[in-house]
Design a protein around this nucleic acid. Structure first.
Lengths: 195, 195
DNA sequence: TTAATATTGTAGTATTCGATAAAAAAATAA
DNA sequence: TTATTTTTTTATCGAATACTACAATATTAA
């Protein structure tokens, strides 16, 4: 039982609205005025619940990774490395092509280049992208240990290649690429898979 | 012989300074105060010479394509499609690894996602990326006509794949990728080349 | 010398940015 | 009821934003 006046909004729902805005317009391109309007709350409520713009973005980023971007850890659960890679592309395409989502990946669209005030957010996104790549790399290392991939395969290099294609597809999505086009890219990319 | 007081700055040199700033910090992340400081001129001079922020960005973009990004049309002059693709990656890596340049490609870093005021610039960059892809596609179509590529090859799909890897490498560069890492990516990407 | 022209330097404009102070409102605890 | 606690509402705050008016300056043309 809380003590004072109860909140009139659902923080998770408000966070979802903030996530969509950051995703579509990037960190710098999203103003607090636009955020409060989309979240349906006023500024003091936002600051009381989420701290400031930067901490709100971090919360939205956590939520992004937990819900729409969970396709990545899920894909890595596939029984073989090759199927994991295929599912990685499929998941990325499905997420981007979801009409309820903005185009591309928040880890890329959020802040690639930025002014002085957003450098810390840019760095955070860079770390998260590196974490995604590392997760793929570990899955491929496991595949080598299991004999699923060749002993001499370069897990780090292959992971870097796969995730680079995912980031590239995120850029393509920002240009309005269609599902078929992204699927073609994934198919061609998979033809580089080591025999 | 001009009529009034002569300018005290070199417009091309000032434009180069503006290009570097837009490239490093993106369109929205670059303020006019930062621009005038880096260009070594004051605001009325900037507006007299370049119009406004948007037209200045377009001028910088033209300069970018003519000089540092000329590696793309140059690569397409290679005698075979495969060597053109290899040179495309090599040129992209060389440009990104030039210590005098910011990381990545201006067509990607300039504005992937943006607020309302930068939407027209975002759209322009999207068109330029599409133009780059179209140039690669036309080169591959020529290769098919010349018998350099298989008759049934998908020029549009292959071009889209190649340029997607270039955009992905631009994202990787923003994360501090090394030359060796980018070269590994290019080598792996080339192993998808049709036999 | 004088008039005309273009650039430079100073000092602004109105607006938007992220962030808050203070009081009113709505709940629980005593 | 009364006191306490928390949120909401309203009204800002100072700083930064893109942009410009105006006068001083430096050149060429007459």
């Amino acid at each position: 039982m809380p003590r004072g006046r109860p909140r009139e909004f659902d923080p998770d729902q408000a966070l979802d609205a903030a996530l969509l805005l950051f995703w579509r317009h990037g960190y710098e391109g999203t103003s607090l005025a636009a955020l409060t309007q989309a979240m349906g709350i006023n500024m003091p409520s936002l600051y009381a619940a989420f701290g400031n713009k930067e901490t709100l973005f971090r919360r939205a980023l956590d939520r992004y990774l937990q819900r729409p971007a969970s396709y990545l850890p899920n894909a890595l659960k596939e029984p073989t490395a090759r199927r994991a890679a295929e599912q990685l592309f499929r998941g990325a395409i499905d997420m981007t092509m979801n009409p309820r989502h903005p185009d591309g990946c928040l880890l890329v669209q959020g802040a690639l280049a930025s002014g002085p005030t957003a450098q810390v957010v840019r760095k955070e996104l860079s770390l998260r992208r590196a974490a995604a790549e590392a997760a793929v790399r570990r899955r491929l290392e496991r595949a080598i240990a299991e004999g699923d991939l060749a002993e001499g395969a370069d897990a780090a290099g292959l992971a870097r290649y796969l995730i680079t294609v995912v980031w590239g597809m995120s850029v393509q999505a920002a240009g309005g690429a269609s599902r078929n086009q992204l699927e073609d890219i994934a198919r061609t990319a998979m033809s580089a898979w080591p025999t």
